[in-house]
Write a protein that binds this DNA or RNA. Structure first.
Length: 577
RNA sequence: CGGGCUGUAGCGCAGGGGGAGCGCGCCUCGUUCGGGACGAGGAGGCCGUCAGUUCAAAUCUGACCAGCCCGACCA
């Protein structure tokens, strides 16, 4: 392609709405432009990269026996009513009516449609397993779109769904997709980790996210410094830290006045005690029933763990009114001692680690010292409901400590079970002639987000540094003096040779000054720049610059194509560390 | 959905009751030509929309719309 004819425009200044590097660079390099909040045009540069990511996905999935389909972006409400999600999905679902007044939505995901599609065709166990995927635009009316393609409302997603005869083979399908994802992201040239993930409303306990490591990531992940354990903080397990507390060291309960001191911070400084010695007592409302939650003062409640532990549908912090009604005091003075047996009490494992806690006294302006498990309160459940944190012991190996990283979730694999197949009657006859619901899995990859994450991870102050496998163009040829015939001829010859060699090549044939072209080339991030300047060409040479290392080398014009081609071919298959 | 901010040329911004401006970008000419050149000339805006106040509104008031930030939420 000739840059002089290309539909693109670079900007020197950073648009004010772009906050993170990938967004700024995609904007500045002319890859994307915003049409509306969270909705973008993909210009040629961006689309080329996206197509490459899609090609990698297709190759890895097709070679593992998956088949591509394409489902509609617009979906009838009836299917969503059947699965029960028409009411559950909330405002994230963009709904509208057609001319006849029937309800529709823009598909935010395709479990319903695929389940419907499969059930029309599935008769016998002999047909399975199936694994169907598509690459589709999805729409989710995000509360807060941000960071460009990182969290848009309309976005390109690869979603796949597996259908198996039983749990065992469904898990095989799951791990096969896990393997495919590992191959895909390696080939895209990003540094990533597969981490245990929370399963949200769908339930089940088998799900992993593929997280690209980047400081701007929205997700917090924890990984062990000595084994392969890694999990999203939403999911990361904490373990009990102590043995049996020494009951002989229990001291007598003592009520203290703490006028106006409500938060752990306030009370701890008022009493001169560490936050870790406090028993934080929170009242939640789980499916309209109050639950008292106890946790060490230096820990935070992980609501997704709590929700899973309680098996609740809707979980939220109780209103002040409900707290008063349940505990007889306002938030700030709530504690576990003397709680009505009507109230369900859940304690985090951290509560077992210490003795002589300080907690609220269930009386305004008063706290109690020396509160002890079993002697003074008996939780109905003691279970891991805390957020894990950096420095915690690894739940999987002995001696390992957890480290914290930020990540961008680019993919998730999910074992679904038979929730949808049961709800929507997607079943087959097994070997005994019995009707069985299919065991399902679903698997997503954010295609645009993967591209953004790659930029987030691979850039410097001058611009993007594309990994070769997903670079829009692999090489740019830069003739520096268009009025120098030898330069132009050398550039055109090399450009043609690259094209013949199957290298994706751009030639910057614009009549611009050298510095201008260099800046643009660095910004757009071509992995290789072949620079043809008057002096070098006169000496029979070209200069080759590698974007990532910044390394430049002068070489004979005749060698350029072979050297650069070999360098590119070595890297096309990706394989980040 | 709560709290906050912003809408003036393609981008970044200044102005703040009576002439619509600056930088970058764009067009023409000349000089320049290896890290976003310089000079001269030029094109480009219903100052987000609608209403109100006023002799007069980009400017004041109100409503609405849009975008952004913080929070809550999230496959």
């Amino acid at each position: 392609m000739r840059l002089s004819q290309s539909f693109y425009k670079t900007l020197k200044e950073i648009p004010k709405d772009a906050r993170i590097p990938s967004h700024q660079l995609m904007f500045r390099s002319g890859m994307i432009q915003q049409l509306s909040s969270g909705i973008y045009n993909y210009l040629p540069l961006a689309l080329r990269s996206i197509r490459k990511i899609e090609k990698i996905i297709r190759e890895e999935l097709d070679s593992r026996g998956c088949e591509e389909v394409l489902m509609p972006a617009v979906q009838p409400a009836s299917l969503w009513q059947e699965s029960g999600r028409w009411d559950l999905y909330g405002d994230l679902l963009l709904r509208f009516k057609d001319r006849k007044g029937n309800d529709y939505c823009m598909g935010p995901t395709h479990e319903e449609v695929i389940t419907d599609m499969v059930r029309r065709n599935l008769k016998s166990w002999k047909q399975l397993p199936w694994n169907l995927y598509q690459i589709q635009g999805k729409f989710r009316d995000e509360f807060r779109p941000r960071f460009g393609l990182m969290r848009g409302r309309e976005f390109i997603m690869k979603d796949a769904y597996s259908f198996d005869v039983d749990v065992e083979s469904a898990k095989k399908s799951y791990w096969k997709m896990h393997e495919a994802y590992t191959a895909i992201f390696s080939r895209c040239g990003v540094r990533f980790r597969a981490v245990d993930a929370a399963t949200g409303e769908i339930g089940g306990d088998m799900s992993q996210e593929f997280q690209v490591l980047a400081s701007s990531g929205e997700d917090l992940i924890l990984s062990c410094d000595s084994c392969n354990y890694a999990a999203n903080i939403e999911k990361a397990v904490t373990t009990s830290t102590g043995g049996t507390p020494d009951e002989t060291a229990f001291k007598a309960l003592e009520t203290v006045d703490t006028p106006g001191q409500k938060t752990i911070e306030e009370v701890s400084s008022f009493l001169g005690a560490e936050a870790s010695g406090f028993l934080k007592s929170l009242v939640y409302e789980s499916d309209s029933k109050p639950v008292l939650v106890l946790i060490a003062g230096d820990r935070d409640v992980n609501e997704s763990k709590l929700q899973a532990a309680l098996g609740s549908g809707v979980l939220r912090m109780a209103s002040n009114t409900l707290v008063e009604k349940t505990m007889g005091t306002s938030p700030g003075y709530v504690g576990p001692v003397g709680v009505s047996s009507e109230v369900f009490v859940v304690a985090d494992l951290s509560v077992t680690r210490g003795i002589n806690w300080i907690s609220g006294a269930n009386e305004k302006d008063k706290h109690i010292r020396n509160v002890n498990l079993r002697r003074d309160f008996n939780p109905d459940k003691v279970i891991d409901i805390a957020f894990a944190a950096a420095g915690d012991s690894c739940p999987k190996c002995s001696g390992g400590k957890l480290e914290e990283h930020r990540g961008i979730e680019v993919g998730q694999v999910f074992y679904l079970g038979n929730k949808y197949s049961k709800m929507m009657d997607c079943s087959f006859l097994d070997e005994e002639g019995e009707s069985q619901p299919a065991e399902m899995g679903c698997y997503g990859i954010g295609v645009g987000r993967t591209m953004a994450a790659a930029i987030e991870q691979n850039h410097d102050e001058n611009g993007i540094i594309w990994p070769v496998p997903i670079a829009p163009w692999e090489v740019v040829v830069l003739p520096l003096q268009l009025n120098d015939e030898a330069v132009v001829e050398a550039a055109e010859t090399i450009y043609e040779s690259f094209r013949m060699a199957g290298i994706d090549t751009m030639i910057d044939d614009r009549n611009e000054r050298a510095g201008f072209k260099f800046k643009d080339a660095d910004l757009i991030g071509y992995p290789v720049q072949v620079v043809l300047g008057g002096r070098s060409v006169a000496a029979g040479n070209a200069e080759v610059k590698f974007r990532e290392s910044g390394e430049k080398s002068e070489m004979p014009l005749d060698d350029v194509v072979v050297v650069v081609r070999d360098w590119i071919l070595e890297r096309r298959q990706g394989g980040a560390e």
